[in-house]
Computed example of a mutant assay.
Amino acid sequence: MDAADVFVLADNALNDVVQQLREEHWTLSFPPALTTRPAAPLSLWQVIGYHAYDDAWVPDMLAGRTMKDVGPGRYDGDLLGDSPQRAFAALVERACAAACAVDDYDRVVHCSFGDVSAREYFWQTSYFRGIRAHDVARVIDVDSVLSPSLVRALWEALSPRVAQWRAAGVLGPEVPVPAGAPLHDRLLGITGREPAGG
C-alpha cells in the first residue's frame, strides 16, 4: 500500500468517527493525556476544527504552494459552520482527491515547520489522522475505527521511527503491552496510549 492510499484510509477513518458525533459530543473535553503538548482543555469541536483546518491545506500543500503563496490566514476561522459533519466530509473528500492525484512522492511539500517530501508529509499526516480517529472514538465511547490494513500500514511506517518521533515530541512515553498483543494494541502502546482505553 502506498503513502497516498494510507492517507486516504486514515483521513476517512477520522471522518467516519466524526460522522458518529451527536450534538452533545461536540462540547466534550478532549483528554490532555491524548496529546503530547497538553495545554488548556479543548472541546471536541476545537479538536475537529483543527483537523478541518489541516485538511483544508492539503490540496495547496500537495500542489507545492507555500503558506505565503496561499495567504497564511486563508483557512482561518470556523470551517465547520452550521453543518459540521457535512463540512468536514467535504474537506476530507477534497484532501483525499488531492492525495490520489500525486504522482511524485519526492516532490517538495512546504510545511509550516519546513520542507519535506510528499512521502514524508503523507506519513506524518496519516499517523496524525489515524491515531486521532482512535482518540475521538474513545472519547465518545464507540468502537475503534482503525481497519486492520490501516493499523498495519501505520505500524510499518511508525515503528522504525519511534525513537526519532518521540525525541521530537510527537509521541508520548510508550505504554508497555504484552509481546503477543494484537498489532492494534501494539500500535497504540508505542504511541503512548492504553490499548484497553485506559
Rank of each mutant, 00 (worst) to 15 (best):
R152L: 14
P41Y: 10
V17F: 10
L62V: 02
A181N: 07
W26H: 05
H51N: 11
A87N: 12
P72G: 03
C111L: 15
V102A: 04
A13N: 04
P41D: 15
R86V: 13
T125Q: 07
E174F: 13
R74G: 02
L187P: 10
E93H: 11
A4W: 01
F88M: 05
A101K: 05
L42D: 13
E23H: 03
D104R: 08
A40V: 14
Y121I: 08
Q19N: 15
F113Y: 15
H184R: 14
V175D: 12
R86F: 10
I140Y: 06
A3W: 00
F30H: 13
D82R: 10
D106Y: 02
P178H: 10
V162E: 14
L187Y: 11
W165N: 04
D16I: 03
G77T: 04
R65P: 01
D185Q: 12
V139K: 06
R166L: 08
D55F: 06
R138F: 11
Q85C: 10
Q20S: 14
G189H: 13
V70H: 02
R86D: 13
V162C: 09
Q124I: 11
A90Q: 14
R107T: 07
D141P: 02
I140N: 03
P178N: 04
G180P: 05
L154A: 02
V162F: 08
D141N: 12
G180C: 05
A95C: 00
A13V: 03
I48E: 02
G114N: 15
A181Q: 09
V177W: 11
G189F: 12
Q85D: 12
V17A: 04
F7H: 02
W155T: 14
R107V: 04
L42E: 15
A179D: 15
P176S: 14
L150H: 00
Y75H: 14
V109I: 10
A39Y: 08
V177D: 12
G180I: 08
E93W: 04
L28G: 03
A39L: 11
L14M: 08
R138N: 12
T36R: 07
Q19A: 15
L183S: 11
A56W: 01
E120A: 14
A52C: 05
L188T: 12
V18M: 09
S149A: 15
P195I: 12
P38W: 06
G172S: 11
A133H: 02
